[in-house]
Amino acid sequence: MKKLMLGMLMSLLAVGLIGCGTDKEAGSSSDSKNDGPVKIRIGIGYATEEPLWLMDAAPELTKYNGDKYEIEFQQFRANSDRLNAYRAGQLEGGTLGQGALIMAASQGVELKVVASVAKDTPNEGFNFPFMAKKGSGIDSVKDLKGKTIGIPDFKSPTDMWARTALRRAGLDPDKDVKFSVLPTPAVEESVKSGKIDVGLVPQPFYAELEPKGELQTVFTSKDGVPVDEDFLSLFFDPKFISENEEAFEAFIEDFQTTMKYYLENEKEARQILLDKEFVLASQDVYLNMEDSNRSKDLSLNRESWVEVQKILLEEKWIEKEVDLDKLLDDSYLK
C-alpha cells in the first residue's frame, strides 16, 4: 500500500462531489464466496485516520484481521475519486467528511455511515484555525470584509466553516470576501506574502507554525459550526454488509479495539505509524501535536448531522433533506 504521508495535502478538508459513473458497476468482493477471509477494500485519505491505519500497521492489535476478513486500503487525494471508485464497485467502503456523505446520499449514492473516525468538538481536541499575519489588523471575522480567504476546495468542510462564521458575524460570504483555493502546504507563505489574508492551517502544519509566532488565529471551525461534528466518518456499501455480516461485524469490533488502543496509547500508536512509514513527518512534531477529538466507541452524533444538513440546505449545496435514519447506522457498534 502507498505510504500515508501526513505532510501532504489534507485532502479530507477538500471535499469534492461525485463525478460520472454508475453505482456499483463491477468488482465488489461481496460477489466472492471463497472460504478464506473476506476482502474489505476501503478508500482512505492522507490525514486524521490514524486509528484506522493501525489495523494495517499493527495487525497484532486486532483479533480477526487475516482470519474473518482481509483489509486493503486504497489511498485517494480527492474525495470525488474515492466516491467514483466506490460507485464503480472497486471499494466496499471508505472515509469521508460529514457534508460529503450527506451530499453523496442526496445524489442517490447508496451507502451507510457506520462509525465516527474523528470529531470536531467545541473546546475539546484540535479545532481547525484560520490564521492571518500577526499585525495585519485582522483580529476577528468582522475584519475580513474585502479580504481573501484560502481554502483547500469549494463545498468542503473548510468552505462551510468559513461561510457560516462569516454569516454569524454579519458578513455575506458571496459578496463581502473572496475565496482562493490553494494547497495546504502553501498557506503559510501565501499569508505572509499577502496572496491571501487568512488561510486554514490543519495539523501537523499548525504544530510546526504556531511556535514561530508569525501568524495568529482569527477564528476556528467551531466559530462557524459550534456543534460536535462527526468531521470524518466511515461508510460502507449496504449490500456488502448484508452479504458479509460476520466479516463486517468482525471488522467493526477490531476497529473499536484499535481506536481504544490509540486513545489510551497515543504516542506509542503514532510511533508505530512512523516506524512503519505510514506517516512521513517530523517525529517531535507528530508525536506531540494535539489531535482531533475522537469517539472511543466510534458512535455517531446524530444531532450534529441534523445541524450540518441544515447548513447544506441553507447554502443550497443540497436541494432537499436526506433521510438521516436511512443514512446513519451505528447499530453494529458494541
Rank of each mutant, 00 (worst) to 15 (best):
I311L: 15
S304L: 04
E268M: 03
N288A: 09
Q271N: 14
T258P: 10
T257D: 04
K260V: 01
E277Q: 13
D254A: 02
S299M: 11
W305G: 07
E290D: 07
E307S: 05
S299V: 08
D291F: 13
F255Y: 15
K260I: 01
E253R: 07
D291H: 14
I311P: 04
L273M: 12
Q283C: 00
E303T: 06
E290K: 15
S304Y: 06
S304W: 06
F255D: 01
L273F: 05
W305Y: 14
Y286A: 12
S304P: 03
E290P: 00
K310E: 13
T257P: 00
R302T: 04
Q271P: 02
L298C: 14
S299Q: 14
M259A: 09
K296R: 14
E268T: 11
I272H: 00
D297T: 11
D284W: 00
M289K: 12
M259K: 12
F255L: 15
N301Q: 06
Y286C: 09
E290G: 02
E264Q: 10
D297K: 10
S299N: 13
V306M: 02
V285F: 01
Y286I: 02
E253D: 06
N288I: 12
L298I: 07
E266R: 12
E253Q: 07
E290L: 11
D275N: 14
L287M: 11
N288D: 13
L273A: 04
R294L: 07
F278W: 13
L263K: 05
Y262G: 05
T258H: 09
L263Y: 01
K267P: 06
Y286V: 08
L280N: 09
N301W: 00
E264Y: 00
F255E: 02
V285S: 08
T258N: 07
F255C: 03
R294Q: 14
F278Q: 06
F278T: 04
M289A: 07
V308G: 07
R270T: 03
Q283T: 13
Y262P: 08
L274I: 14
N288L: 10
F278P: 06
S299A: 14
L263M: 14
